[in-house]
Design a binder for these strands. Structure first.
Lengths: 197, 197
DNA sequence: AAATTGATTGTCATATTTGAAAATTTATTC
DNA sequence: GAATAAATTTTCAAATATGACAATCAATTT
C-alpha cells in the first residue's frame, strides 16, 4: 500500500542526466547541482534515490556498463539475415551511429578516472571485450575462410574506429571524416574477403 | 634589472600539470587546487602566471594544440629513410606510443567541452587534420600506386585507432588488445599494397 | 476518511573553490 | 648596499558543493 514507487523511473532519469553531465564535464565536473538541473529535479532527490556521491558513482558505472552491453546486443539483434557485416558498418558509421546519449564520451570519462574506481575499469574492459567478441563472431561467421586472429583484429579495428568517431562527434567533424571512417572500417571487411586461411 | 623572470618555465610547468589533471578529472574537475598541487606550487601562483580560470583554459587549449602539432612533427621526423609506414606503426603502436602525458585523454576532455570553448573545437580539428594529412602523405609516398582517397582513409583509420588505444591505456588493457590494434593498423597498409589505382 | 508509504521540498552546517588584492621575500643591477 | 623587478606567500570575501536531516505533500489501501 501507500504511494506507488517511482524508484525505477526516477533512478533511470537521474542516471541518464548524470551520464550526460559526465560526458560534457568529466566525472569530477558532474556535480550534483548540474545533474539535478539536467534531470529537472531538486538536488536532494539525487541523494534520496541514489545515496551519497560515491554511491552515485557506483550506480553510474553499473548503468553505463549495462547500457553499453545492451547497445551491443541491440546492434547485433538489428542485423539482417544476410550481408550482416556491411549492415553492421551501416549501424556503426551510419548517419546516427548508436550515438544517442554521447555514451562513448561517458565511457572515456569513466575510463580516465578508473584508477580511483576499480569497478569502472573491470566493467568497461568486460563490456568492450564483449563487443569485440560479438563483432568478431559476426565476421568469422560471414567470412568462414578467414583466419580467426584476422577476424579479431578486424573486429577490434572496427569497434575502436567507431569509438574514436563517436568521441569526436562533439567537434562536429567534416563529412569527409565520417566517410573516411566508414571506408577505413570497410577496409577491414575487404581484407577478410581477400585473405584466406 | 630586477629578479629574473620564470614566466616561461613556470607557465610550462603549470600547463603540463593542468594537462594531467584534465586528463584524469575532466576539464571542470581540474580545479586550481588540484593543478597547483600537481605542479607543486601555491594556487595563487596560477593566477599570477595565467590569469583567471577562463584565461587558464584558453592557455591550456593553445598548449595542448601546440603539443599535439609538435608530436605530429616529431613522429614524422623520427621516421627512417625506408619503410616509413611500418616504422610509423612502430611508433604509434609500439611499447610506448607517444603516450607520455596521456595527451589523448586531455584532448578527449577538451573535445567534450568544446561547445563551451569554440577555440578548442577549431584548434583540435585543425591539429587532427594536420596529423591525418601528415600520415596520408607518408602513405601516398610509399604507396604511389594507391588511390589517394584510399590513402586518406587508411591514414584516418590508423590515426584514430591510435587515439582509441591511447585513450584506453588508463584501463591497462590486455596485451591482446594492443596486438590486435597493431594488426588492424597493419591491415590498412596491406590494403594499400594490394589495391592499385 | 484515516492510515500509510513514499515523493518532494526546505533548511542548515560544513567544506571546497574561486577571485582579488596586499604584503613579503628573493635575486639581480648600479 | 640601495633600488628594483619579479617571485612567492598571506589573507579575506564570495560563490559553490556536499551531507544530513526535518518537514510537507500526494497517492494508494483498507
Amino acid at each position: 500500500m501507500g504511494r506507488p514507487s517511482l524508484q525505477e523511473q526516477r533512478t533511470a532519469e537521474i542516471l541518464t542526466a548524470y551520464e550526460l553531465c559526465v560526458a560534457r564535464h568529466g566525472l569530477d565536473g558532474a556535480t550534483q547541482e548540474r545533474v539535478a538541473a539536467q534531470a529537472g529535479v531538486k538536488r536532494t532527490l539525487l541523494r534520496h534515490y541514489l545515496g551519497n556521491k560515491d554511491e552515485m558513482v557506483e550506480a553510474l558505472i553499473k548503468h553505463v556498463v549495462a547500457r553499453f552491453n545492451s547497445e551491443t546486443d541491440q546492434m547485433i539483434a538489428a542485423l539482417p539475415k544476410t550481408a550482416r557485416p556491411k549492415a553492421l558498418l551501416d549501424i556503426l558509421f551510419g548517419p546516427l551511429g548508436i550515438t544517442e546519449t554521447a555514451s562513448v564520451l561517458t565511457i572515456n570519462a569513466l575510463g580516465a578516472a578508473s584508477d580511483r574506481f576499480p569497478k569502472a575499469r573491470t566493467g568497461l574492459l568486460a563490456a568492450m571485450e564483449r563487443m569485440h567478441d560479438a563483432v568478431a563472431k559476426e565476421l568469422s561467421q560471414d567470412y568462414p575462410d578467414a583466419d580467426i586472429t584476422a577476424c579479431r583484429a578486424a573486429a577490434f579495428g572496427i569497434c575502436h574506429l567507431y569509438f574514436s568517431i563517436d568521441s569526436l562527434m562533439m567537434l562536429d567533424p567534416p563529412q569527409d571524416w565520417l566517410d573516411q571512417a566508414r571506408q577505413a572500417a570497410n577496409t577491414h571487411l575487404l581484407n577478410l574477403e581477400g585473405t584466406l586461411k
